[in-house]
Design a protein around this nucleic acid. Sequence first.
DNA 1: GGTTTGCGATGATCCAGATCAGGGACGGCA
DNA 2: TGCCGTCCCTGATCTGGATCATCGCAAACC
Lengths: 243, 243
Amino acid sequence: MTIHASGSCDQCSLKVLCLPVGLPENELWQLDEIVQRRRPIPKGQVLFRMGAPFSSVFAVRTGSLKSVLLSDDGTEQVTGFTLAGELLGLDAINKGLHPVSAVALETTSICEIPFDKLDALAGQLPSLRQHFMRTMSREIASDESLLALLGQRSAEQRLAAFLLSLSMRFRARGLVADRFCLSMSRADIANHLGLTQETISRLFTQFRKQGLIEIHTRDLHLLEMDGLHRIAGIRFEPLSQTA
Amino acid sequence: MTIHASGSCDQCSLKVLCLPVGLPENELWQLDEIVQRRRPIPKGQVLFRMGAPFSSVFAVRTGSLKSVLLSDDGTEQVTGFTLAGELLGLDAINKGLHPVSAVALETTSICEIPFDKLDALAGQLPSLRQHFMRTMSREIASDESLLALLGQRSAEQRLAAFLLSLSMRFRARGLVADRFCLSMSRADIANHLGLTQETISRLFTQFRKQGLIEIHTRDLHLLEMDGLHRIAGIRFEPLSQTA
DNA sequence: GGTTTGCGATGATCCAGATCAGGGACGGCA
DNA sequence: TGCCGTCCCTGATCTGGATCATCGCAAACC
């Protein structure tokens, strides 16, 4: 019932980012065949809940989601945001249970890929297998740099780094890197960066006064990426080769 | 030159934890054939350096290592510790460069597994492929709970959670869960948890006074796991099914 | 046996960011 | 159009943990 008529991987504008990367035409249809396209889910709706059994990974076609880890004592941690072209649910393969919940930040459309079928296909198609492994590897590496952010950095370094990281992800999608809309609230950003809502507000104001950004509610314009880089103090992509 | 005569996967006591999990006898030898056993590396030696090209994943046979991410401004983040039976280097698959350095915390012996051969074998052996994916997935999930730790928790919650997490990893190795040796320094623990050396020292003293632990330098004895769990405020394994 | 050296313990001080409290802008809906 | 709820901003106060400095101890080295 969740199968939706619209689209195929071949026609999808995100095929250069998503699972189809590197697949020749004659292999792509095999992937296409196991992908289920679901109807869009509205803002605030839960795609899967923490603790729920895992059977599929998800690819975001349009929109965005946050991943939230809920602890025993009720505190929540926003572990990440997922944008169009990215995969969701990779952290659930190990135990067969989702360790986080996924919540749509705006109206969002999703492709569902049953994992048993994806695994079988990965056995047959080396380039699919390799791309999938690279995707998981990238997730690990990016969590590691987020750890460095939370463990070592000041509030302003964290926010600057976060904005730059978002910017690069939009650029990878063929969108402009310096002007985009934040689909997440201040509270979500704060939680994700281990700060408070108030600090985020103050920092946006500070960055604006410094001429680094323009922001109207959620419409963000990065005026001086160099300045933000200087504040962040970290280069993300590409990791420079250290001798 | 790095190949060492000793051992085979079949005889290794860690085969229930490491890559061979779930492989039948008649498949295990194929994995065994591509594994290179290196001579032990001494304490403090670097297994691979951040930025170095990636060609193999590593499995720890005995000993332990820390992974360190070095930022442009010189600050370091210990992103994790790797114990016997665990894999190292999974974060490097994506870019083909190691995003962290790995440093031995004690005399440590390592198996090296060339990734191109491992990938080819993963194409042929479903249970190897699935176990490898589960391993990467576990790495992602555990980074996520670490993010929650760094983003939300007090110093004492972080240390309690860290000790319990180590304890569970030792238990998984068939070792006693309540008595083990910390192969990492106070400074390493502090860095990993986003705290300082001094705070770690104070907390060890505090836990001792509360009768929760006994510690002599690096020999740790957990006296009251329940008390530590209460402080940590988080349950790790197993993630309880939340309706 | 005495000295060096590195690691761990502890006390005093300071500051970034949390917490608390109040107010204003905006959007959805009757 | 006006109401209400959500989201965002900002000021005042508080505090956890960093920082700095010093001390004690034990293993290593002559």
